[in-house]
Design a protein around this nucleic acid. Structure first.
Lengths: 334, 334
DNA sequence: TTGTAGGCGTTATCAC
DNA sequence: GTGATAACGCCTACAA
């Protein structure tokens, strides 16, 4: 491995000069500059980033901590984060916590010890996620999709409004007994979407039935099980608003398996982009988030935070978009 | 930030002793050990991993380089890699190359400069991926899903067999004019699956028609466009084998948009796990790979390689599994 | 068993 | 402008 010393020796200059040329700091005579550059070429020298990070205390790496890498919502956010980070010369380290607060903790402490320059996180919990030590180490943090227990910059969609327009769409089609399957209580987005659901019911003068509100886990199986639970009630709902994409998948499967919903008069609203939403019949209505833009916004915010010229905390709120397709339409008349 | 010196001072021992306690190397008196541990507690000391990596030249981080983070095939591999890596105390750094050889190059040189302990990679190209410098730096590499230009350990499914059984499944249903949409020529898996397709045609005595073989890009839109192209032939095929999941999605959409395939007599076989395969009608037949296991196998191989007690190169081949569903069945009689 | 001291490769602060 | 040189935090001979 060629080091900066080898380059210096070959170019007959000091390591300081090599460093200056490499980093473009300070003025260096053109002649020396070319000598250095050709030495770099010849030795195919690559600076040791670990040593550099050690010396400068800055890694040029930002971490993206997400709860579920198999969820298209988060991978799309990844893309946005990458776009912004790469453009600024940063690498992105993606960590998957698997909705597990323990794993999340481990990753966070690993990342702080690793001295990453900043963290974009979609926390497992808006209550229990242990972000304080990170902030104390002065590592900048921006949350995306879900909020943190501590005040930070955050990027998210107006979840409450999203829940509301999803529910309103069902109401408009004439559904009266609308259930809601949301995520874990401790995730802010789950709570917000449920609130929006209640808002819509209240506005429409519909009854709010506790048995129709299910806290699940944002996962496929959770959606499936919740649908079963709802349909086993002695007074089952006539439609369901499912508060994320993966649970919607499970819910759709359950409705199919139970022989309901495909040809029958049963309403379904999803949340998040659903890649297969147009492929099935009935096609699945949903409330989409501009995920890639959200990722970009989060990363940009983080970068400006890291530059230090950005004080205070901002909440960047995107608007949810209703994609009204077939599954929320009243398909038979009463 | 507390350093090892602070801990040493507080515990009234030398830094060497602290280091020994922390790493469990060498013998340390129990009394000192407890003194050190409580000092660590009190200062909530976290070792600086950058400094440690700098000193030891080893990072306890393995990188996973994949071409498409929005593809469930790769995210599932991620999960497997994480399982094995985390169990061994390693963190996983995921890098998304976006099927872009430039980006891949950048990531690889970043990772080598970063001194990651090892790399699991699903290369963009089996010809152009520039892995040599990594290997020369003595960073261990295992490929997964696709092969590298250089001989390394590799984990993959028997792609040729996969292509064959997919095609055979269509043949068995009575299809005669079977087309194949595969990925980019330079990806080994694309080529192999196409070979399997040809094998099956040959065995069955069916004609091999060049116009029915399309090299696309493993992406959604590619599948869509290829289907359009095929159906515009003056002698269009009666069925298609699509060689990965994302192109299958695009293909399904195209068939739907063109009014074919859903109710008509047109066969479709996919490749890879297709999350929505059971949700649509007709349900989509496919050839699945045991992705999570493959990820685990790759990471385990890498770890044993890093331990140095594993010479030579192994090719770990998993078996593809036919999931015969409706889309490959002959739904109307001729 | 414990402590001292050197060095990993880089950058930054000084003199020159 | 350029070059010595110290320092970043940690581990590990080697000495005690």
């Amino acid at each position: 491995m060629a080091t900066i010393h080898d380059v210096a020796a070959l170019a007959k200059v000091s390591t300081a000069t090599v460093s200056r040329v490499l980093n473009g700091t300070g003025f260096v005579d053109e002649k020396l500059k070319t000598r250095v550059n050709s030495a770099v070429q010849e030795l195919s020298y690559q600076p040791n980033l670990v040593a550099r990070a050690f010396r400068t205390q800055a890694t040029l790496v930002i971490a993206l901590v997400i709860p579920d890498i198999e969820n298209p919502f988060f991978t799309s956010i990844c893309r946005g984060v990458e776009d912004a980070a790469n453009a600024a010369g940063y690498s992105v380290m993606i960590c998957n916590t698997d909705e597990d607060i323990e794993k999340e903790n481990q990753y966070l402490s690993m990342l702080t010890s690793q001295n990453v320059s900043g963290i974009v996180i979609s926390p497992v919990s808006s209550i229990y996620t242990n972000i304080q030590p990170v902030i104390e180490r002065n590592i900048k943090v921006v949350s995306v999709g879900r909020t943190l227990p501590v005040k930070t910059d955050s990027v998210h969609v107006d979840n409450r409004k999203g829940g509301r327009i999803a529910t309103e769409n069902l109401i408009k089609s004439g559904y009266k007994k609308i259930a809601c399957i949301t995520g874990d209580k401790s995730a802010s987005s789950a709570e917000e979407r449920l609130l929006g659901y209640k808002d819509a019911l209240l506005d429409a003068g519909l009854e709010i039935d506790k048995r129709y509100q299910i806290y699940s886990d944002f996962k496929n199986q959770g959606g499936y099980n919740s649908v079963e639970k709802l349909l086993n009630l002695k007074d089952p709902p006539d439609s369901i608003f499912v508060a994320n994409n993966r649970m919607t998948e499970g819910a759709f499967q359950a409705l199919k398996d139970l022989g309901i919903g495909v040809s029958n008069d049963f309403g379904l609203m999803g949340f998040d982009e659903i890649p297969w939403g147009e492929l099935v019949s009935p096609s699945v209505s949903t409330v989409a988030q501009p995920t890639r833009q959200m990722g970009m916004a989060a990363a940009k915010k983080l970068l400006s935070k890291m530059n230090g010229k950005d004080q205070g905390f901002e909440e960047i709120v995107f608007q949810p978009e209703l994609l009204a397709r077939q599954s929320s339409m009243r398909r038979t008349n009463l």
